[in-house]
Design a protein around this nucleic acid. Structure first.
Lengths: 206, 206
DNA sequence: ATAAATATACAGACCGGTTAGTCTTCTAAA
DNA sequence: TTTAGAAGACTAACCGGTCTGTATATTTAT
């Protein structure tokens, strides 16, 4: 019953538990129990745990990128402002204000690449694809913002994102996003991207 | 026999295998076999696998920081040049030219924080300590280089390091270190750190 | 409308393999 | 002779994965 439900719910639960406890450390049984789903229902939809892992990463990629885009765009600023707003989105995430208050446990894709270190492992490759798609979005913003070299700026900002993620995860550095944002400001300026007045929104100038 | 050997060799083997295959995915048996050491010899020196993991991380921290410092300092340049040389060291590492040609599989501490996500887990905390110690070294260099705000510059460069590590690991981006180096150049300039002529060593000016 | 057939999902026993960790026996060297 | 270490059996738990059986719907045929 509720055809859209069982498989979806299983994948959602897997996303949550894999993200929280890791892939190898999370057993099938825990997922089944948490999801309230029978064993054979899982193996009807997925032929192995590895396939469930891939499905969970696919879902996470989709979920994350949708959230990220909307978090960046809800500010409604110019492309340049949106590039900066991406760091505010990271801060939301780090502080557990994103994804319904789920505590931050690092980027699932960085974590996946860590656990599945062989670069030809499907999960590892999916991690690379996720980062590539995020960078593609940044490249679009950089281009719209009038960067002299949009590819380079997107690459740089992506690197700042990952650096901030690592700092937030490994060192519990709650200011990582803000610090990275300041670096981004410098790099954008260097690329000829013009921002409105420093530290004040262009629309609410009192 | 060879008193210094057994325990040390065990830890060295653990460093290698944990680094290559991950912590949860590496069983005790594999380490024992690879090291050619008996089971009880392990449990004579460590009361659990967790303790072996911590010992391996301690060794890796020591090994990595010694290598990193010497790789940075063998260039023999000024403090400012050494800050930049740190990115060349990363490149060596990424390309498998460090640690006796062991292929790069990411930073063991980032990986540890990924597998042991609870921030109060000893391995996770050791990862934070490792990053802190590396940053301390960078702070010293930044200070000697005459940075206006050495703490900030060290923090920024550490973030660039981690960003480059993630890019190299997740996306197999072989230019990650060079790209990060260029960003560092900008940030150092902004901090009033003066470099000799661009792209040419100060001692070998032909 | 009623009855049979089909599909879906749950519950749980079960399997072989592997895990971390303990214990005992044997060997070789100091 | 003493002792460190190798070898390997052993335990208890857990792993991913399979199999059986049952209950409940929905669909189809009569």
């Amino acid at each position: 019953m509720a055809r859209p439900s069982k498989k979806e719910h299983l994948v959602d639960t897997a996303v949550k538990l894999f993200g929280r406890d890791g892939f190898n450390a999370t057993g099938i049984d825990k997922i089944l129990q948490e999801a309230g789903v029978a064993r054979m229902t899982l193996y009807k939809h997925f032929k192995s745990k590895d396939e469930l892992i891939l499905a969970a990463l696919r879902r996470r990629d989709e979920q994350f990128r949708i959230w990220f885009k909307s978090a960046v765009e809800k500010t409604g600023g110019s492309p340049a402002q949106r590039l900066l707003a991406s760091f505010d989105a990271l801060e939301e995430w780090f502080e557990g204000r994103a994804f319904g208050g789920v505590p931050f446990t690092g980027c699932s894709f960085i974590n996946a690449a860590a656990e599945f270190s062989a670069s030809n492992h499907p999960a590892h490759q999916m991690a690379g694809e996720h980062k590539r798609l995020l960078m593609e979005y940044l490249r679009l913003l950089a281009s719209s913002a009038g960067a002299r070299n949009p590819d380079q700026l997107a690459w740089e900002i992506a690197l700042l994102h990952d650096g901030a993620i690592v700092a937030a995860q490994v060192s519990s550095d709650s200011n990582a996003a803000r610090g990275a944002k300041e670096i981004a400001r410098v790099l954008m300026k260097q690329q000829g991207v013009s921002l409105p007045e420093e530290g004040r929104a262009v629309t609410a100038q009192c």
